[in-house]
Amino acid sequence: MKIPLVDLKAQLETIRSEIYEAIGEVVESTAFVKGPHTKKFENEFAAFVKASHCIGVGNGTDALEIALRSLGVSAGDEVIVPAMSFISTAEAVTTAGGKVIFADIDPQTKGLDPAKLKAAITPKTKGMIVVHLYGCPANMEALKAVADEHGLWILEDCAQAHAAHIGGQHVGTFGDISSFSFFPGKNLGAYGDAGAIVTSNEELALKVRMEANHGRVGKYDHEFEGRNSRLDSIQGAVLSVKLPRLLEWTEKRREVAGSYRIKLQQLSEKGLLKLPADIPGHAYHLFVVETPKRDSLLEHLHSKGIGAGVHYPIALHNMKAYEYLQHKPDDFPVADALSQQCLSLPIYAELTDLQLDYICKEIINFLAE
């Protein structure tokens, strides 16, 4: 049995006719850049998360960098980011001109640990990037309390957290501004690179639109040097087809996660496998378990045709790109432990009971032997 980590082909089969029709409409209209399909999706996504503005951009990394520039990050400004995330979270700080400051993560949510965040603040700190890692909402109440106490802004990195929520409020609407990635493998994925920035701050929204469009509002009226980062019309059309199904797909992901918990509970009780914390509002972009036997279990699953993965095998502070920060080996123990033991199991709305049973059987057979 071959089971991919995510099955985009299976998803396509459920929406094929609508996808082809939407792409065809864009081709026939020849409105390929900043056309009505892009604007339509921007309006729809803003309404979905209940924010005032959504600005489509080229990809999730651009979304982070443009948001940071719009927040006014400049040379010498420190921005705190979690020690466990994809590199774009930290990379965007540097490319925007700021300085990356790492803080350890909470062992339950895998987002920034509020206590570690507070300890990392200096007079040069301007703000923080809160990552809702794996689709799990970070502790926004505690993080916002720290931000308010120290006068810091919050940029929410929601690249893995479409439809995740806290008490019914969508992530991406707690901070000052938020970034989303619509990379094809995301819960809401385009058919190419795509991203967006969301905010309810009018001033920030205008800065974002200008920053992403060569520093202009009018066609040739450039107030500053920006960049060219646009959500193209075909991606907007694809995302408009998928968005109405996102809540249904997310609920199915939660059902799959619940099944994993039931089937793997015995391993958890024996201390052989750590299951992800059952945090309300989790969107389960990834279902990440932890085991000291991660590498050998991963090899076993691959040998059985199961496309498990690792997100992420190297914590950010341990990457060669950040050697210059000269961190000590024990600076971020929670992020280090996660990087050494994390294992992502296949999860998507179309995953069948038969596939799920097969995955769990192979995990149990390997770890319980």
Rank of each mutant, 00 (worst) to 15 (best):
D148A: 12
H150V: 04
G151F: 00
L152Q: 05
W153H: 03
W153I: 06
W153R: 02
I154Q: 04
L155K: 03
L155Q: 08
L155N: 10
E156D: 10
E156T: 09
E156P: 07
E156F: 05
E156A: 08
D157M: 06
D157A: 15
A159V: 08
Q160N: 13
Q160G: 08
A161I: 01
H162A: 14
H162N: 06
A163D: 14
A164Q: 06
H165V: 04
I166F: 11
I166Q: 10
G167P: 03
G167V: 06
G168W: 02
G168M: 03
G168D: 04
H170L: 12
H170F: 14
H170W: 04
H170R: 09
G172K: 01
T173K: 02
T173F: 09
T173W: 08
F174T: 08
G175Y: 05
G175Q: 07
G175R: 03
G175C: 12
D176T: 05
I177L: 09
I177G: 05
S178G: 14
S178H: 08
S179A: 15
S179C: 09
S179P: 08
S179D: 05
F180W: 06
S181H: 02
S181V: 02
S181C: 09
S181L: 02
F182T: 03
F182V: 09
F182H: 11
F183D: 09
F183R: 00
G185W: 11
G185H: 11
K186F: 05
K186C: 10
N187R: 07
N187D: 13
N187L: 15
L188W: 03
L188F: 07
L188M: 13
L188I: 12
G189S: 09
G189N: 06
A190P: 09
A190E: 07
A190S: 15
Y191D: 15
Y191A: 15
Y191F: 13
G192D: 12
D193F: 08
A194K: 00
A194H: 01
G195N: 06
A196M: 11
I197V: 15
V198N: 10
T199H: 10
T199W: 08
S200I: 05
S200L: 11
E202R: 12
E202N: 14
E203V: 10
E203A: 14
A205G: 14
L206I: 08
L206H: 07
K207N: 15
V208P: 12
R209F: 10
R209P: 06
M210C: 12
M210S: 06
M210R: 04
M210V: 01
E211N: 04
